[in-house]
Structure formats: C-alpha cells, structure tokens
C-alpha cells in the first residue's frame, strides 16, 4: 500500500483534487443569484460604451463626416440613453 501511494501518489493527487474542486459547490447551501451586483456591473459597462459613442460622434463631426443636424440628433439620442442608464444605476 505504501509503495502504491509512493509510486502513484502524485498522479492520484493530480486526478482527485480537480474532482473535489469541481464538485465542492454542490455541497454549499443554495446560492441566490447575485442579481443586483451583476446588474450594476452591466449598467456601468453600458454607460461607458455610450460615453465612448458620444466621443466618437463628436470626432466624426469635428472631422466633417456627419452634418450638424445628424450630430445634434445623434448626440441627443445617446445622451437620452445614458441618462436612462444613470437613472437605472441610481435606482439600484
């Protein structure tokens, strides 16, 4: 038995540990979804993306790739979207 453990010990550890690691959460009490935490992260990401889009729109306008009307309406739409995201963030 001792010889077996000495010869195969490392291999047993390498194979058994991942099994324990993988199955361990099943023995925890039921976990509720971390809704709020995840929603906040998602909304923050969305906010960041809209800010980037506003910056890009401003650049397109500065270069002359879009006309003034499109720029004003596009920026207004994005600002409305970001306001909604900020409001949603505040409500959480």
């Amino acid at each position: 038995m001792i010889d077996f453990i000495r010869d195969y010990g490392l291999i047993l550890i390498l194979f058994i540990l991942p099994v324990i690691f993988a199955l361990q959460p099943l023995f925890l009490p039921r976990i509720e979804k971390m809704h709020i935490q995840l929603d906040v992260a998602e909304l923050k990401r969305k906010k960041l993306l809209i800010y980037r889009q506003i910056k890009e729109l401003e650049m397109e306008y500065d270069i002359g790739n879009i006309n003034e009307n499109d720029f004003i309406s596009g920026r207004a739409t994005l600002k409305k979207e970001v306001s909604e995201v900020i409001a949603a963030l505040k409500s959480l």
Binding site: P18, V19, F21, A22, L23, Q24, P25, L26, L28, R30, I31, E32, K33, M34
Partner: peptide
Amino acid sequence: DQRLFLTGQRLALG
C-alpha cells in the same frame, strides 16, 4: 441554481 453554475464552471476548468 447558482451552485450548478459554479460546479459547471469548475468542471469546465477541470
């Protein structure tokens, strides 16, 4: 059930 999600993640890492 989040426990199943965690187990699934860990099995995939396995």
